[in-house]
Design a binder for these strands. Structure first.
Length: 114
DNA sequence: AGCGTGACAAGGT
DNA sequence: GACCTTGCCACGC
């Protein structure tokens, strides 16, 4: 898959994350058919165009922490976005994945009994 | 082509 | 938790 297709797949993958849930760079890449290219997800989101909005703030590191430096503007903005959707974020930028991580299983549960 | 750098990940100390 | 190492991939020099 070429770069342009990879970018499109990544953006589509990020857009699939439901509001109020989070995912990781690695999972986003995997769901885009780009296993092992977590770093590319960060690159693509960094280029995210304003006229083509993507919920970049729903993407965290694999350990559930925000990828930006604590206290940076981007960090604070991400915290604000997440909390607005009901995601609990600690002062140090940590999110409990067991509670908020998006998984196919949880989506099915919500569809069936949610 | 080589090398450093980075919104990463996984495993170990 | 804070680091380190290894593997990874795209970019810019």
């Amino acid at each position: 898959m070429d770069t342009a297709a990879a970018i499109a797949a990544i953006l589509a993958s990020v857009r699939r994350i439901p509001a109020g849930r989070v995912s990781s760079y690695g999972e986003v890449a995997a769901r885009a058919g780009l296993k092992g290219r977590a770093r590319m997800v960060g690159r693509v989101l960094g280029m995210a165009p304003a006229d083509d909005p993507v919920p970049w703030y729903r993407v965290l590191k694999s350990d559930g922490r925000i990828a930006f430096p604590l206290g940076s503007d981007a960090f604070k903005q991400q915290v604000r976005h997440l909390r607005k959707e009901g995601v609990r974020v600690s002062k140090t930028g940590r999110v409990d994945l067991a509670t908020h991580a998006w998984t196919v299983g949880q989506s099915l549960d919500e569809l069936l009994w949610g």
